[in-house]
Nucleic acid binder design. Structure first.
Length: 320
DNA sequence: ATGTGGATCCGCCAGG
DNA sequence: GTCCTGGCGGATCCAC
């Protein structure tokens, strides 16, 4: 049941990206406190490796780790201005060919690109490298604005902290909202970028001038009722046009998309932690009807609310 | 499955 | 000249 995660380190590694993957996956715990991922860092040559920040990293396993990995994560590395060794490319492709998945953080996307895993697919990378990626690999549909992109067996993320978002997303997809939220809390990361409720609870400082954070917090408390841009704009005391513009600037997404993402998270939370009917949960999370909730589940999670609950609900007797 | 009315989004532009 | 605002129109998306 424990999934094997290999973190593939290449010369002149970005240490932060490595740490993201290692911390996130090795922090995830099941209901009994057991590790859900077995994380191992590897490199083309076992042993040690240079980072971009002066020090070296030691104790890395060899590429044979890839042969038994369910997931391979590639952090950024400066050496990726050139294609990695053939054995690295073969290893990456091998993971996907065996039904595993390949994940990249930041410029690690280049490794997946060199391996041909991104041809005909959407992908993202650090904004600073997006143009170079698109130029070098015309068959890849590069989206420089996305935080991360899920193409099923291949997932890519933008720079640095977007790697945290992606790892949390994967954990949440594998093991449900609750396990993801626990990892986020342990890492003191936002459970979902600019989403989730915990980050707004007992906010110590007043929101910065002009910020819409207070309106988002209010929206989170009122997800069950119909919310439209006009209503939110009125609460922010600006025109709908200005509200929409600021919203995108602050969150990187549009009001409706954000709202739907928050409602989906709430629905997942309720499915995992309560026995409420799907209909009740649909109403409580603001989807209005069970069919609407089902449609959103199908589109975003490729599953149904009932199947989701069966997979992720806390075992009976486990405290909520 | 398809259509329809309404909301949303986004480029554009004028005004402060 | 610059930045931000807010209104308009059309394409698109969404819910029913």
């Amino acid at each position: 049941m424990t999934q094997r995660v290999a973190v593939l380190c290449l010369e002149r590694l970005v240490a932060f990206d490595l740490a993201i993957a290692v911390e996130a996956f090795s922090t995830a715990r099941g209901p009994g406190g057991e590790r859900l991922y077995d994380v191992e860092a590897c490199a083309p040559q076992p042993g040690d490796l240079a980072t971009t920040t002066g020090f070296r990293i030691a104790g890395l396993a060899g590429l044979d780790v890839l042969d038994r990995a369910d997931t391979v994560v590639v952090p950024a590395a400066r050496s990726l201005t050139e294609p990695p060794a053939q054995a690295v490319l073969d290893g990456l492709r091998g993971v996907v060919d065996r039904g595993g998945r390949a994940v990249s953080i930041c410029a690690g996307t280049f490794a997946l690109a060199y391996a041909g895993l991104l041809d005909g697919r959407r992908a993202t990378t650090h904004w600073e490298w997006a143009d170079a990626l698109a130029a070098a690999f015309p068959r890849i549909d590069v989206d420089p604005d996305a935080l991360y992109i899920d193409e099923g067996e291949v997932l890519t993320s933008a720079g640095l902290s977007a790697g945290i978002d992606l790892c949390l997303y994967i954990i949440r997809r594998d093991h449900g909202e609750r396990v993801g939220a626990d990892v986020a809390r342990a890492m003191v990361a936002a459970p979902h970028r600019d989403g989730g409720q915990a980050q707004f609870i007992e906010r110590a400082l007043p929101s910065p001038e002009g910020s819409l954070a207070a309106v988002r917090a209010w929206a989170l408390e009122n997800l069950a009722q119909p919310l439209d841009v006009a209503t939110l704009a009125r609460r922010a005391a600006v025109s709908p046009r200005t509200f929409a513009r600021r919203f995108v600037a602050e969150t990187g997404t549009t009001p409706l998309k954000w709202l739907q993402a928050q409602r989906l998270l709430e629905a997942r939370r309720l499915l995992e932690r309560t026995d409420l009917s799907v209909e009740r949960i649909a109403l409580a999370s603001g989807f209005g009807s069970a069919p609407s909730l089902r449609e959103h589940f199908r589109r975003s999670l490729a599953t149904t609310p009932t199947a989701y609950r069966r997979a992720f609900a806390a075992a009976p007797g486990v405290a909520a």
